[in-house]
């Protein structure tokens, strides 16, 4: 049994701190670039379609996960759907209470397979139910930057 199991405080054993000082610079990729530019410029969603597997990928993908073929069939899909499941978040990453609990929902889109996890707003947590109709609320055009945060949240239709 190590010393740390028998001492009162971690600092009773010699110790020091260090970090791994890296940050990531991520690209959206070939499919993602087109998806986010469409959101930024037009405030709408694009998807790619695998005609062989009958799957509409939203967010769009460059290739079909199932048959591995290249996808170049692009379609516009509506920004509405329904709540597949949801949670109400009360604490932040540091375990501090949020001033206002936030609703986080997995929204399945009507015109696509899969969907997005995003915030739900303009509704009280106790009023949310599975299957509830919702739509995306986009930020104003001059505030959009081509990121997932260009969607402010989903709200009930």
């Amino acid at each position: 049994m190590s010393l740390l199991h028998r001492i009162e405080h971690p600092d009773d054993a010699l110790n020091w701190h260090g970090d791994m000082p890296t940050e990531g610079r991520y690209t959206a990729g070939i499919a993602g670039e087109r998806f986010f530019r469409e959101i930024k410029e037009k405030g709408q969603f694009l998807a790619t379609v695998c005609l062989d597997c009958d799957i509409t990928y939203m967010p769009p993908r460059l290739y079909c996960e199932e048959c591995f073929s290249h996808l170049d069939e692009w379609v516009e899909v509506g920004s509405w759907g329904h709540v597949h499941t949801f949670t109400v978040v009360h604490r932040d990453l540091d375990n501090e209470p949020l001033s206002e609990p936030r609703i986080l929902a997995f929204v399945t889109l009507d015109d696509a397979d899969g969907g997005l996890v995003h915030y739900l707003d303009e509704i009280e947590p106790e009023d949310v139910y599975l299957g509830m109709r919702v739509e995306a609320v986009f930020r104003a055009e001059d505030e959009r930057q081509g990121s997932i945060s260009d969607i402010e949240y989903f709200r009930p239709v």
Partner: peptide, 26 residues
């Protein structure tokens, strides 16, 4: 600096390897 995501890079190489021997993912 690739614009492709890591997944997209992997797919491109895998896709080319399969095509080189006329095989599919199946």
């Amino acid at each position: 600096r690739a614009q492709e995501t890591p997944k997209e890079l992997a797919w491109e190489a895998a896709h080319l390897a399969l095509r080189s021997c006329e095989m599919t993912i199946d």
